[in-house]
Write a protein that binds this DNA or RNA. Structure first.
Length: 942
RNA sequence: GCGGGUGUGGUGAAAUUGGUAGACACGCCAGACUUAGGAUCUGGUGCUUCGGCGUGGGGGUUCGAGUCCCUCCACCCGCACCA
């Protein structure tokens, strides 16, 4: 009988659907397990074979856990807000919701045919108002919270307002911009407001003024900040959406621009995001990338007084503050560099240098981020101004240069040319002093960044190792009152506004310019006449008139939308309670399901999604909405499946195509050919002629056997390379079970690997053979209950191996183990029986669930195989009576001896010493030593 | 430059704690079946001058190294003027 996978798969998919086989609910009688895939953006192109790789792995694991008795949550949904649908809308006028709906329908079809065990009743779509209602709600909570740096947690903003009313902001430890008050101008604070205010001050403020003060402390806050502006996309981008100064999507130039934007105070969570990485079961590569992205560095901030005309500290009290990780090199400071955007540039610049400085600042401002980053040449201008060295009192010239970044630290550095590569190059280039501060190093000739170097010319730190002087230097700076111990992070607060249509609207209205949360309604997207920014550069939502908004409150609505990562930062929670209309997720449900135990997805979300989701989770935990503060306990990043492109070789200027092996004899042009016309590198000649009109007259120079061999190369899958393999074709030809097994069999999940359709036939044959094994065992009648001992040995060996491999997430070797079992059983002596073939069907079930159901039934299993208990390997069947010992001489295997497994090592040694073949091998040499590794090997040292 | 990873037959790969390198497949070769089925079955398949040699190169530890240590090389990914 043939392996009729079409009938089998259709039958079981229908059965599962009819019986709600994959529906789960909270069940406290079982331990829970949460297996999650990174949900896809439903693109118009549909899935290719690379996409399901991770879904198959997670599906296998989810099914395995279910067999093991866990209550498994394994949902799927769509990250359905996004740029492609919006751009399609701009071009065609079709509402993005329509495009999105169509794409989702196609994804659903493709996913369903693969037989995944998703609980589809829990599907979520981030673009659905019933979902983004709660994204808005979380935003609202972030808006109405501040971060208490002493308690290290987020608290309601009302509590901060109370504290202000009681005591002003004395003893308030709130995360905020260091100079949060700058830019606010409240008359009653006076000219020298330093950021502290009393309860009386608070009391005297107008409501608007209070709102402005509170805004500076909110976790979701509005601020003028320097953002990445992408003119081509007409929107701002977060740091992780910019690669090499170009937008990640589309590759358009990005410039810095100051704009009033919604921001997320992720910096408040920097240390917690860093510290709790240790407890996660993620790869070091992802953890390291996050550590680097957060970029914690410890050092000191030091203030240098601005010098007046007489070289004394200026009467204005102006100071340049720098951050340094090397305060030990303070004696080596010979100049100072400010970022061109630094606030003190104007004050420091003398009349004589005015023109040069202005020109430099203007030029730096015009440069795109890409130019600025790409340009490693040394440039800078002297401002003419000086600061006073806090130790020596010497005048330090102040320069500006764009190697100093406005966005990091204080936007100014103390330059120590002897100890910093860039400072050294700068000093050398401009002929600035290089004070010697390291013993035995000629820093005129080379820079010394080694913290093990011995200091000199550094007063009381002379003779100390630089590294040892750092803490002393920080103490000194603090004692002198010129600075303090400081921890700096590279991570910036994240821009949360996007000037786009197809995203979540903010639940924010404005009343007399004050932003207020809308709590009584879901703000849905208004109608607009076009999906483009307005002529004034306002976001697309600004096109909507008051009556176009389903919800309009206050004087004006916020017209930005949220970024793509908003919806994906909490979707794993919504799956737990997807239809709840009164809460984002009921607490008892999030308490039951808890963290995602295994998260499967690509490695491309390292610094974006994964960081934001962790941030929101910690926030929701702080505010008591969930009981855990890390979303994803374990994670596997699957590798990319690459395409295998095929090529034909056209002799230049002709219609003649030469086979790969003879192409060198001609001047040829290499052309991609559709992989569907190629089988085993052999080209379907007729198909090729029919493929495209220009090849209709093609002539061929063939191999001796009359075939045309194509060349090949491994590349990313893409339409233009004609190397895209869709799962649909393969499911049609081989079935879902074959495709599932094959994708797993292809290689280690985490590795990148080329797609090769050749190999699939081997896996298909394996399933066919498996079915034949069962058919022959039943032989028309019911299957016997008892199998031979031989058969049981084979099956129990497989149980041990498969279980072990699955626990290690070694998905590929499981398929091999099953193949071995089926091969061995097919040629095993004795009878097959239920006690062998039922467990085997369960082992197969995670990989080939449809066939496994069929086989389970034929082996007399009751109910669905889905709920069959995972078999346990019986040791009695695993121990062998005898062992074949390889006998090696000085590490080289020479012969083998079969011995009883129970034979004690001394006896083995004696036996080997006296063995004929040993004597033969030895010749006239004497045995120096014999090593017996019980059950494994014997090594004779001669 | 920094961080992470990878390197094994013609190909995808396996080898969990150091213990027979190349399991399992693909491909290829030979044969069987008998005609055309993207069949099936059987056998072979790392290289070899038949001594041996073989896990990117070189060195080391060990009775024994793909596996541990040092060093170098190549490729891939991420970050990158971060003070």
């Amino acid at each position: 009988m043939d392996y009729d996978f079409r009938a089998i798969e259709a039958k079981w998919q229908r059965t599962w659907k009819d019986s709600d086989a994959y529906k789960v609910t909270e069940d406290t009688s079982k331990p829970k397990y949460y297996v999650l895939d990174m949900f896809p953006y439903p693109s118009g192109a549909g899935l290719h074979v690379g996409h399901p790789l991770g879904y198959i792995a997670s599906d296998v694991y989810a099914r395995y856990k279910r067999h093991k008795g866990f209550n498994v949550l394994h949902p799927m949904g769509y990250d359905s807000f996004g740029l492609p649908a919006e751009q399609y809308a701009i071009q065609t006028g079709q509402h993005p919701a329509v495009t999105t709906e169509q794409n989702i329908a196609r994804y659903r079809d493709q996913l369903e045919q693969l037989g995944f065990c998703f609980d589809w009743s829990r599907e979520v779509r981030t673009s659905d108002p019933s979902y983004y209602k709660w994204t808005q709600w979380i935003f609202g909570e972030l808006f109405e919270s501040w971060y208490d740096t002493e308690a290290q947690k987020a608290r309601p903003i009302a509590e901060l307002a109370e504290a202000f009313a009681d005591n002003g902001n004395f003893n308030v430890h709130a995360a905020c911009d260091e100079h949060w008050w700058k830019g606010l101008s409240f008359p009653h604070f006076g000219e020298h407001f330093d950021g502290t205010f009393t309860a009386t001050d608070w009391d005297s403020m107008s409501e608007q003024e209070r709102a402005e003060v509170l805004m500076a402390f909110r976790i979701a806050y509005l601020a003028d900040s320097e953002v990445n502006w992408c003119p081509a996309l007409g929107t701002v981008l977060a740091n992780d959406e910019v690669k090499d100064g170009l937008s990640e999507r589309g590759g358009h130039p990005v410039v810095k621009k100051t704009m009033r934007q919604w921001m997320m105070r992720i910096t408040a969570y920097a240390d917690r995001l860093l510290d709790s990485l240790d407890g996660l079961d993620w790869t070091d590569s992802v953890k390291d990338a996050q550590r680097h992205w957060i970029g914690r560095s410890e050092g000191a901030s030091v203030r240098f007084a601005v010098a007046d005309d007489q070289g004394k500290p200026d009467a204005s009290g102006a100071e340049v503050e720098v951050f340094t990780t090397r305060p030990d090199t303070l004696h080596g400071v010979s100049f100072m560099v400010l970022a061109p955007e630094h606030g003190l540039v104007t004050q420091l610049t003398t009349d004589a240098q005015g023109q040069d400085v202005e020109a430099y600042v203007t030029a730096a401002g015009l440069k795109s981020e890409r130019d600025r980053q790409g340009d490693k040449s040394i440039s800078g201008v002297f401002t003419g101004g000086h600061v006073v060295h806090p130790i020596s009192g010497a005048l330090i010239p102040v320069w500006i240069a764009d190697y100093v970044l406005a966005g990091y630290g204080t936007g100014a550095i103390m330059a120590v040319p002897a100890g910093d590569e860039r400072d050294w190059k700068f000093a050398t280039h401009f002929g600035l002093d290089i004070p010697a501060i390291f013993e035995g190093v000629d820093t005129q000739e080379e820079v010394c960044t080694d913290k093990g170097a011995i200091l000199c010319g550094s007063g009381e730190w002379d003779g100390m190792k630089a590294a040892d002087a750092i803490p002393l230097a920080i103490d000194w700076v603090e004692k002198q009152g010129v600075g303090s111990r400081t921890i700096n992070h590279r991570i910036r607060d994240a821009v949360f506004s996007r000037q786009r249509y197809w995203g979540e609207p903010f639940p924010i209205k404005y009343e007399q310019g004050v932003a207020k949360r809308i709590t009584d309604a879901t703000v849905t997207l208004p109608k607009v006449d076009a999906y483009l920014p307005t002529e004034d550069g306002e976001p697309p939502l600004a096109r909507a008139a008051k009556e176009d908004w389903p919800v309009f409150q206050g004087d004006a609505m916020e017209t930005n939308t949220m970024p793509g990562w908003a919806g994906s930062s909490w979707y794993f929670l919504r799956y737990m309670d997807p239809h709840n209309e009164s809460e984002f997720c009921a607490r008892h449900k999030s308490d039951y399901w808890g963290q995602v135990d295994l998260y499967v997805g690509g490695a491309e979300h390292t610094t974006g999604h994964l960081l934001y989701a962790r941030f929101w989770t910690k926030f929701l935990h702080d505010r008591g909405h969930i009981g855990f503060d890390e979303p994803f306990k374990g994670m596997i990043n699957q590798g990319m499946i690459l395409g295998r492109s095929s090529f034909v070789y056209r002799i230049q200027g002709t219609d003649t195509f030469v086979t790969a092996s003879q192409r060198k004899a001609h001047a040829t042009q290499r052309l991609h050919v559709d992989i569907n016309l190629v089988d085993n590198d052999k080209l379907d000649l007729e198909g090729f002629r029919a493929w495209r009109p220009e090849y209709a007259q093609a002539e061929f120079i063939l191999e001796d056997d009359g075939s045309y061999l194509c060349g090949h190369e491994v590349e990313k899958m893409s339409k233009s390379k004609y190397n895209v393999q869709t799962p649909d074709d393969l499911v049609e030809r081989y079935g879902a079970d074959t495709l599932r097994c094959y994708e797993m069999f292809l290689g280690p999940l985490t590795q990148h690997k080329p797609w090769d359709t050749q190999g699939i036939s081997g896996v298909h044959n394996f399933l066919r053979k498996t079915q034949r094994l069962y058919t022959q065992a039943t032989d028309g009648g019911p299957m016997p209950a008892e199998a031979s001992e031989d058969a049981l040995r084979i099956v129990h060996k497989a149980i041990a191996k498969v279980t072990d491999d699955l626990d290690r997430h070694a998905f590929n070797t499981v398929v091999s183990a099953l193949m071995i079992a089926v091969n061995e059983l097919s040629s095993a002596s004795g009878d097959m029986g239920q006690n062998a073939l039922q467990p085997l069907a369960v082992l197969l079930s995670p990989y080939a669930p449809h066939l496994a159901e069929e086989l389970w039934a034929s082996a007399g299993g009751s109910g669905s195989v889905l709920d069959a208990a995972w078999p346990v390997a019986d040791n009695a069947f695993l121990v062998e009576d005898s062992v074949t010992y390889p006998v090696s001489f000085n590490g080289k295997v020479r012969f083998k001896v079969e011995l009883a497994a129970s034979m004690p090592p001394p006896e083995v040694e004696a036996l080997i010493r006296a063995h004929d073949k040993t004597l033969e091998q030895l010749g006239d040499k004497a045995i120096r030593k014999v090593i017996v590794v019980p059950g494994r090997i014997v090594n004779v040292v001669a």
